[in-house]
Measured scan of single mutants.
Amino acid sequence: MSIQHFRVALIPFFAAFCLPVFAHPETLVKVKDAEDQLGARVGYIELDLNSGKILESFRPEERFPMMSTFKVLLCGAVLSRVDAGQEQLGRRIHYSQNDLVEYSPVTEKHLTDGMTVRELCSAAITMSDNTAANLLLTTIGGPKELTAFLHNMGDHVTRLDRWEPELNEAIPNDERDTTMPAAMATTLRKLLTGELLTLASRQQLIDWMEADKVAGPLLRSALPAGWFIADKSGAGERGSRGIIAALGPDGKPSRIVVIYTTGSQATMDERNRQIAEIGASLIKHW
């Protein structure tokens, strides 16, 4: 067993022997301040990774656009098919120029040779490549099948209805392509620590998230040296922004954090800054 596999296998073990965790309302004060600064709703939840206990939450059962955070769930569904012998990570998928959609920095470079399922998941999570996500959605049967996968996990809230990039439209009061912070946090925890996926697939999923290259201005910008984070960000229309993450000190994750916002007129930089400040408060009061 590799060191990384050992780390993920012992996530519940280490967490069980940690000192009790206590909620700190100071972080919620910052979440509410972010709402004021952005002029928009902000949803927040913080779960203990081992027990699933909610440590703090704000608007945990209000719907927010998922945006690209759905790509972690998508690759979880792909990995479940791999575990069941219905898919192979090494299978190569070929596609054409007509398949390319807006923001496809990886797939646009491989029109000639195609990409493997493993490479597509890596591109979808680490670079948020939209064509990679659409190609992977095709392998599982489309958005409705991802929703069905989530329902089978016990998540009857999260739903995907459309493809990239239309799913980022974020129309107010439109339930399409949305989740709730509580539902997303619980589902992410199941994917990373539950028995739904094999140990190898859980490790692969967290490795992809740990290698995320496009979430630097968010929670990662607030992390002290030595902290662990595996995350996936999302951005959408109407001032929408979000991030889902597993993080913790001492090089291992111990909490799940989900943050979503929508309806702001603020710039992307300002949305990023507010999420980073929430992260800084979380870490300060850990």
Rank of each mutant, 00 (worst) to 15 (best):
H24L: 09
E26H: 14
E26G: 15
T27S: 01
L28E: 10
L28G: 13
K30A: 15
K30H: 15
V31E: 14
V31C: 11
K32C: 11
D33V: 03
D36L: 05
L38D: 00
L38A: 02
A40I: 15
A40E: 08
A40C: 10
V42H: 13
I45P: 00
I45Q: 00
I45H: 00
E46N: 13
E46K: 09
L47V: 13
D48T: 13
L49V: 05
L49N: 01
N50Y: 04
N50F: 13
G52F: 06
G52D: 12
G52L: 07
K53I: 13
I54S: 14
L55P: 11
L55D: 12
L55T: 10
L55G: 11
E56K: 13
E56P: 12
E56S: 14
F58H: 00
F58N: 00
R59G: 07
E61F: 05
R63N: 11
R63L: 11
P65F: 00
S68I: 01
S68A: 00
S68P: 01
T69I: 13
T69S: 07
F70I: 01
F70G: 02
K71H: 01
V72K: 01
L73C: 11
L73P: 12
L74C: 12
L74E: 14
C75I: 13
G76I: 06
S80P: 06
S80G: 07
R81D: 08
V82T: 00
V82S: 11
D83K: 06
D83I: 01
A84T: 10
A84H: 15
G85P: 15
G85A: 13
G85E: 15
Q86R: 08
Q86S: 13
E87V: 05
L89Y: 06
L89H: 05
G90P: 06
G90S: 06
R91T: 07
R91M: 04
R92I: 03
H94P: 05
H94I: 08
H94D: 08
Y95T: 02
Y95N: 02
Y95D: 05
S96M: 00
Q97E: 15
Q97N: 06
D99H: 15
L100G: 10
L100I: 08
V101K: 12
Y103V: 08
P105I: 14
P105A: 08
V106M: 14
H110Y: 13
T112R: 13
T112E: 14
D113N: 00
D113P: 00
D113C: 00
G114Y: 05
G114K: 01
G114M: 03
G114E: 14
M115P: 11
V117M: 00
V117T: 04
R118H: 08
R118T: 01
E119W: 13
E119Q: 09
L120W: 01
C121A: 03
A123D: 15
A124L: 10
T126H: 05
T126A: 09
D129I: 01
N130V: 07
T131A: 03
T131M: 10
T131I: 11
T131S: 11
A133S: 07
L136F: 14
L137W: 15
L137E: 06
L137K: 03
L137M: 15
L137P: 15
T138R: 04
T138A: 06
T138W: 12
I140Q: 13
I140D: 10
G141A: 12
K144I: 03
K144D: 09
K144W: 13
E145Q: 09
L146R: 14
T147V: 03
T147L: 04
T147W: 05
A148I: 02
F149E: 11
L150V: 15
L150A: 11
H151A: 09
N152P: 11
M153I: 13
G154I: 00
D155P: 05
H156K: 13
H156A: 06
V157I: 09
V157Q: 05
T158L: 05
T158F: 07
R159A: 01
L160C: 08
L160Q: 03
L160G: 03
D161K: 02
R162W: 07
E164C: 02
P165T: 10
E166K: 13
E169Q: 05
E169D: 02
E169V: 09
A170P: 07
N173C: 05
E175A: 12
R176S: 04
R176L: 07
R176T: 10
D177V: 10
D177C: 10
D177A: 08
T179V: 05
M180W: 03
P181T: 04
A183E: 07
A183Y: 06
A185H: 02
T186E: 07
L188P: 13
L188G: 10
L188M: 07
K190T: 15
L191D: 15
L192K: 08
G194E: 10
G194M: 11
E195W: 00
T198D: 05
L199W: 10
L199S: 09
L199Y: 02
A200L: 02
A200H: 15
A200P: 13
R202S: 07
R202E: 10
Q203L: 07
Q204H: 03
Q204R: 03
Q204M: 08
L205G: 10
I206P: 11
W208D: 02
M209D: 02
M209W: 07
M209H: 09
E210Q: 10
A211N: 15
A211P: 04
A211L: 03
D212V: 13
D212M: 03
D212T: 15
K213G: 03
V214A: 12
P217R: 08
P217V: 12
L218G: 06
L218F: 05
A222N: 00
A222C: 10
L223F: 15
A225R: 08
A225T: 11
A225I: 03
G226H: 13
G226A: 08
W227P: 01
W227Q: 14
F228E: 01
F228K: 00
F228I: 00
F228L: 03
F228N: 09
I229N: 08
A230W: 10
A230K: 14
A230G: 10
D231L: 12
K232N: 15
S233I: 14
G234Q: 05
G234W: 00
G234N: 04
G236A: 04
G236L: 04
R238N: 00
G239S: 13
G239C: 12
G239K: 09
R241Y: 09
G242K: 04
G242N: 01
G242L: 04
I243H: 04
I243N: 05
I244Q: 11
A245M: 14
A246E: 10
A246G: 05
L247I: 13
L247N: 14
G248C: 04
G248Q: 03
P249D: 05
P249R: 12
P249V: 08
D250C: 04
D250G: 07
G251C: 11
P253S: 11
R255M: 13
V257E: 04
V257A: 06
V258Y: 13
I259N: 12
I259V: 09
I259F: 14
T261D: 15
T261Q: 10
T261K: 15
T262P: 05
T262A: 08
T262N: 12
G263E: 14
A266R: 08
A266N: 14
M268F: 02
D269A: 03
E270Y: 02
N272T: 02
N272W: 00
R273A: 11
R273W: 07
I275F: 12
A276L: 10
I278H: 14
G279W: 09
G279E: 13
S281M: 01
I283D: 07
K284P: 04
K284C: 11
K284M: 05
H285R: 02
W286Y: 11
